[in-house]
């Protein structure tokens, strides 16, 4: 005899909950392990170090600049891919995925080589990039922007095209229809794209290590700090800095989400 439907449904829901529970437990477990390994004293010590304060400041500012730049690029690219057909579109689409699938070290190495080419040297002669702060932002941007582009593409794909078409019949140019009708609807997507780009940029390590180095008080960002502290055997400081990054990420996520909810995104 078959079981009643609600009993069978309970089994299915339990199956879903089991996997959700396992993964959530893994994530929380990692955070709890960090938090219990370190003491408030370790955190304060980390914050008292001038080098770590510099790294934190550079991490936060470079990630924010990267996130803004990424959204600035991702909005037009995402819209172009979502709303237009052109020759070579699938090629462009494929190229835009390269930073997502390429190993991070390879991205750093490629940037380093690019800036040793004649073009790169011409840029370097005007604005020094390699092993300096601009290289940190460029290394972060090279990866983060690809994630922002994907998010914006999906955002525009999900927005109905009809209101935009109506705007055209009302006398709007394509640019006016985009600015006045479509872009205001994409606020939530742009916020998600920015947050994703920001989080990727904050955690960026490999490309920065290769392209910018990890020079203290110069190009050291928080992930480099973790690596530097670990390599000198200072596990407490490494964990404390990791926790700082977790706290910074949570603060930005919660603040941005609250802002988004208030604005109806």
């Amino acid at each position: 005899m078959r079981q009643p439907a609600d009993k069978r449904d309970r089994g299915f829901l339990a199956f879903l909950a089991l996997f959700a529970g396992l993964y959530v437990a893994l994530i929380l477990g990692m955070l709890v392990a960090d938090a219990t390994y370190t003491t408030p004293r370790d955190l304060l010590n980390a914050l008292e170090s001038e080098e770590i304060r510099y790294a934190a400041k550079l991490s936060l500012t470079s990630s924010t600049i990267t996130a803004l730049l990424s959204v600035w690029f991702a909005v037009p690219i995402g819209y172009l891919l979502s709303r237009t057909e052109f020759t070579g579109k699938s090629f462009v689409d494929g190229v835009l995925d390269i930073p997502i699938v390429l190993p991070p070290m390879v991205i750093g190495l490629s940037l380093l080589i690019l800036f040793q080419s004649p073009l790169g040297e011409a840029i370097e002669s005007q604005v020094p990039v390699t092993y300096r702060v601009p290289s940190v932002i460029l290394a972060q941007f090279a990866v983060s922007c690809a994630f922002a582009v994907r998010t914006m593409r999906v955002t525009f794909d999900q927005l109905p095209v009809r209101p935009e078409q109506v705007a055209l019949t009302l006398g709007a140019s394509r640019a006016q229809a985009f600015w006045r009708v479509t872009l205001p609807q994409a606020g939530g997507g742009a916020l998600s794209a920015g947050l994703l780009a920001w989080a990727r940029a904050l955690g960026e390590f490999g490309p920065i290590l290769v392209f910018s180095g990890a020079t203290r008080m110069k190009t050291e960002v928080l992930p480099s700090t973790v690596w530097l502290e670990l390599s000198t055997g200072n596990l407490e400081a490494a964990v404390a800095v990791s926790l700082l990054m977790v706290l910074a990420a949570i603060t930005v996520l919660v603040t941005a989400r609250a802002l988004g909810v208030r604005r109806g995104w």
């Binding site: 109905p160 009809r162 209101p163 078409q165 109506v166 705007a167 019949t169 009302l170 006045r180 009708v181 205001p184 609807q185």
Partner: peptide, 14 residues
Amino acid sequence: VGYVPQDGALFPKL
């Protein structure tokens, strides 16, 4: 040409 599409297709943010 004035256009009134099915279900209106109003501009959600205006």
